[in-house]
């Protein structure tokens, strides 16, 4: 009887401690992701792609986004500025809650706006190592979180949080069976992440090398994504970043995509 009570007590302690760790992981992520709500954003986005042999390519994109605070749905317009052969190419994404995103592509070479299917949020963004999911705000409720512990990394005391997809759909759409995030304990910035593919192998690592304070919240403005399997690296930097400036909804329409620069 006494041994049984002790076992029940130990089991109860383990389960509640495990439950505490899970909630803590979720709580931390919730605080990290919901610190600020950016309504509009305008920036010059620079991408530098580097292969394992040291070959580099640069991309420069004028980036605009607008999020409806009531629905949390985002419209995003990107226009290529560099390289010159794709200058003027426009890419418009309009999120929907109940169906696939609308995507429009304006190709100056074809003088046409095309409504296109998309390869999903797991598709690579502009041929870089970032996927569309990586550059968007992670969906909090799509993942189960567990606090793995604490670690000092890059001289930052951080929480290590494991995120597992809640459903097969999330796994299929993102391509990630697991993400481990390092969250700074001081300002809750996610400065390092590791992404695991569907087979459980480490696929990519993300390091945020610079944060810019916007409305008191650190915003990642210089990020490096490394694909450890193909040994390819992409650096994404945001310059001339402006937040919450007035941008008309008309701007995020196919009509505006084909106007001269």
């Amino acid at each position: 009887m006494r041994r049984t009570s002790t076992c029940i007590g130990i089991l109860f302690f383990i389960l509640t401690d495990y439950a505490w760790m899970q909630n803590t992981g979720y709580d931390i992520m919730e605080r990290a992701l919901k610190r600020s709500s950016i309504k509009t954003m305008q920036a010059d986005l620079k991408l530098v792609l580097e292969t394992r042999t040291g070959d580099t390519r640069e991309r420069e994109i004028a980036f605009f986004s607008k999020t409806d605070p009531s629905t949390d749905l985002t419209k995003m317009l990107m226009k290529f500025v560099y390289p010159k052969d794709v200058r003027g190419t426009g890419f418009l994404t309009i999120e929907h809650a109940d169906r696939a995103d609308d995507r429009f592509l304006y190709l100056p070479a074809l003088r046409q706006i095309k409504k296109i299917a998309n390869s999903g949020s797991g598709g690579n963004f502009m041929s870089s190592d970032f996927t569309y999911y990586d550059i968007g705000t992670p969906e909090l409720e799509d993942w189960t979180y567990r606090l793995l512990g604490e670690e000092t990394r890059n001289r930052r005391l951080s929480f290590m949080i494991e995120a597992l997809p809640k459903s097969q759909q999330v796994l299929d759409e993102t391509g990630y069976s697991k993400i481990i995030r390092w969250v700074d304990q001081t300002d809750l910035s996610m400065f390092h992440s590791e992404y695991y593919d569907k087979s459980g192998e480490l696929k990519k690592k993300l390091d945020v090398e610079k944060f810019t304070l916007i409305n008191g919240v650190p915003f990642a403005t210089d990020m490096v994504m490394q694909d450890v399997i193909i040994e390819h690296t992409s650096r994404m930097t945001f310059e001339d970043l402006e937040i919450d400036i007035p941008i008309s909804d008309d701007f995020f329409t196919p009509r505006y995509m084909q106007r001269e620069q």
Binding site: R99, A100, D102, R103, K115, I116, A117, N118, S119, G120
Partner: peptide
Amino acid sequence: FIFTGEKWA
């Protein structure tokens, strides 16, 4: 006409 979805049109 065009119908678009995830990964197909």
